[in-house]
């Protein structure tokens, strides 16, 4: 399963970064169309798909690849 970060939805609140048990997420310097700094992978190979980022993300940024066809 590949997890996709929907960059348009992210508001850079940092809840996923705080609660990620493996600490593999970080804020990037890139900004999205809303002007927020977006979350990015620091080391995606360590992800064990626990789903805590999905549970805590207020904006439903983390979805399975192919879940949203925009």
């Amino acid at each position: 399963m590949k997890i996709k970060i929907l960059e348009d939805r992210c508001k850079g609140c940092g809840l996923c970064i705080e609660f990620c048990p493996k600490k593999i997420l970080a804020l990037s310097d890139k900004r999205n169309l809303l002007g927020y700094k977006i979350v990015c992978w620091k080391s995606p190979e360590n992800c064990n798909h626990c789903g805590i980022c999905y549970l805590m993300c207020p904006e439903v940024v983390f979805v399975e690849d192919g879940e949203i066809e925009r």
Binding site: K11, G51, E64, I68
Partner: peptide, 18 residues
């Protein structure tokens, strides 16, 4: 997890970050 609920529309939320 990682699945968008079917009854959630795909609009971006207008709420403040956090």
């Amino acid at each position: 997890v990682f699945k968008l609920p079917k009854s959630l529309k795909k609009n971006i939320f207008h709420y403040c970050p956090g």
